[in-house]
């Protein structure tokens, strides 16, 4: 079956999108349930994101280029589809173009026997200014920052963290449109020319959302970002962590290469 037919079967109607330069496809969930495989995705430059047996199966198709908002794992315009729901659910796509829909999309969910109405904007407001705790396994990206999913859900619901599981928190936050990942997730490099670089462009891709920011970096992961090195070091000390602390260069001068552009 052709990719377009498979996508159509999942509720995605994407005439003219697949196969174009700049079109980006992400698959969340089991290949077996979506009917998609890596060959399908490779044919149009797509890739599998966080293969998991947990959470809803989702396919998102669109163009990254139209959504410059930094720090989001799903900077897509276009369709986001779940087989159990069928149809285009654009409000699930976190993108400036659809900000109005996203801000207005309420999710009704039941956690620990209580009903909650949540929306992405409300979650963002709640965690703004809240220091993320260290990530153990899973994390959710809100703004540019990575938070433990349970920390976020506890903050927005007021529930005790013992009242729900990480899986529940991940599922709810994902349904609100946030990128939910596991530690070790590495974003895709933007440029095939980086394939000879030390980390094949993965470090560059990981740093991209933090250009001009002070960060704490551990391996290829950015643990924390802030306006100043003082804030980054305070966070490291508070959490007993050790990391590379620096400001990601925004200009050639900051990179120390005034005279040496490659």
């Amino acid at each position: 079956m052709e990719l377009s037919a498979k996508l159509s079967g999942l509720g995605c109607s994407l005439p003219g999108l697949t196969g174009q330069v700049g079109v980006h496809i992400e698959v969340f969930g089991l290949d077996g349930l979506t009917g998609l495989d890596l060959d399908d995705l490779g044919s149009v430059g797509g890739h599998l994101v966080e293969p998991t047996t947990l959470g809803p199966v989702q396919v998102a198709v669109g163009s990254r280029e139209e959504c410059p908002e930094p720090g989001l794992s799903r900077q897509l315009s276009g369709c986001c589809c779940c087989p159990e729901l069928r149809g285009c659910i654009t409000e699930r796509v976190r993108c400036d173009k659809y900000a109005a829909e996203r801000m207005g999309a309420m999710l009704t969910t039941r956690v620990a026997g209580k009903d909650f109405e949540l929306d992405a904007a409300g979650v963002e407001r709640t965690v703004t200014g809240v220091d993320p705790e260290p990530i153990r396994d899973h994390y959710v990206v809100i703004g540019r920052r990575r938070y433990p999913p349970k920390q976020v859900l506890a903050a927005v619901t007021g529930l005790d963290r013992g009242d729900f599981t990480t899986h529940q928190a991940r599922s709810i936050l994902r349904r609100l449109g946030f990128g939910v990942h596991r530690r070790g997730y590495v974003p895709q490099p933007r440029d095939g020319a980086m394939s000879t670089w030390p980390h094949r462009g993965a470090e560059a891709a990981a740093l991209e959302p933090y250009i001009g920011r002070w960060i704490a970096q551990d391996g290829l992961e950015v643990l924390y970002d802030a306006d100043s090195p003082y804030d980054v070091v305070r966070w490291l000390r508070k959490n007993g962590l050790r990391a590379r602390v620096w400001r990601v260069p925004a200009t050639s001068e900051e990179a120390g290469s005034m005279l040496s552009h490659p």
């Binding site: 933007r190 440029d191 980086m194 670089w197 030390p198 980390h199 462009g201 993965a202 470090e203 560059a204 891709a205 740093l207 991209e208 933090y210 250009i211 990601v248 260069p249 925004a250 200009t251 050639s252 990179a255 290469s257 040496s260 552009h261 490659p262």
Partner: peptide, 9 residues
């Protein structure tokens, strides 16, 4: 150390 996509990156 890899640098992101900036001039001189």
């Amino acid at each position: 150390v890899e640098l992101p996509h900036i001039p001189g990156g």
